[in-house]
Design a protein around this nucleic acid. Sequence first.
DNA 1: TCCGATCCTTGACCGAAATCAATCTGGCGG
DNA 2: CCGCCAGATTGATTTCGGTCAAGGATCGGA
Lengths: 203, 203
Amino acid sequence: MGRRRTVSAGEPLIWEDDDSLLVANVIEGVLKLTTSTADGREQIVGVAYPSDFIGRPFGQTSAASVVALTDARVCVFARNDFDRFARDHPELEHKLLERTLAELDRTRAWMVLLGRKSAPEKIATFLLDMSERLADNGCMAHTGPAKHFTLPFSRQQVADLLGLTIETVSRQFTKLKADGVVALPGRRDVEILDRAALQTLAG
Amino acid sequence: MGRRRTVSAGEPLIWEDDDSLLVANVIEGVLKLTTSTADGREQIVGVAYPSDFIGRPFGQTSAASVVALTDARVCVFARNDFDRFARDHPELEHKLLERTLAELDRTRAWMVLLGRKSAPEKIATFLLDMSERLADNGCMAHTGPAKHFTLPFSRQQVADLLGLTIETVSRQFTKLKADGVVALPGRRDVEILDRAALQTLAG
DNA sequence: TCCGATCCTTGACCGAAATCAATCTGGCGG
DNA sequence: CCGCCAGATTGATTTCGGTCAAGGATCGGA
């Protein structure tokens, strides 16, 4: 069915291929979905992990662009083919509906963060979210939230995810380190030292 | 199938009924979907217009609460019944999937507004959005964006939608009026005098 | 028509985060 | 091993929008 493709970190996943739009399934790696304003301010509107579906089947084409954050493997489908196939396979459509509903829930929760939370709350919420998302990367289920993990994001990308500037993100990280809430052994490594404190900060 | 219910303006739509969760279809009126932080800050995460679907079929219950903005009529279903019915009717699931994908797109566009736009940009974007949404309320299709319309929101609710405070919303409205971009004949009435200016402001 | 409640507007002030501007770090190629 | 450079941190300053605090408008009910 779909064709395998590899995308290296930083590379965009092109949505035009043989004049036909694509949809895709993530096999491995992490990708960002972004939308930008006319003057170039960027907002990350979604993050796709393995097994997540990306693209916009049925009609309209979505405005978001997709870029790999880590080296990634995806399984791409020409959209027309996919649409036809989906219509004939209710089980697939059902699965897709469940995933889309779950993604909508997650997106709505993120709206509260963007619209109503302060910078410290945003950072704390982000770290807790990451610690959960990156925990069950492997094959075994529910190992619980990770204490130590490597972010698939640069500081700028964290800023684009939280609706902040890179400087504010950096300052908040520094503050959490100074307060002994987290350790930052490497640029993208986080170790949660005081989860309770983070949860309090997250509000 | 579903039971008709009327909800008057300001009244919440309860999701518990005879120990079974509900899903619903909006027949008439406008409702808000909100999520709040622990300390009571509120964010409107979605707005449901006639023909929109609300609630969370299949598994998890969504965290959002639903309140009618205007008097509304909805058609409610016990979720268990709905789930069973949907699984047996692929056409319904397909329709629901299309709507959910469209809602996800709209929600993602709103994230850019919340995360990256200034107060003037937020207000301008909001007014243009409203002018389009409230245009085809009636039966005829595509009359184009409305020049004059009545908001289904109080100032506080506009603030909750845009991630601002009521004072900032008020000041921005006043400024647009002073600049001759809009007229505000009544508390909730908006007349767009200079659409081009609004579009420029929206960015 | 008057009253009261609620919603909205306006003003003065403050503070959190953005902006502007240097450094600093660490990873990599030569 | 050294120098380079993108990414990250830190500091100084500004600004936008929030907070606090009065008023003013509008609507419904007596």
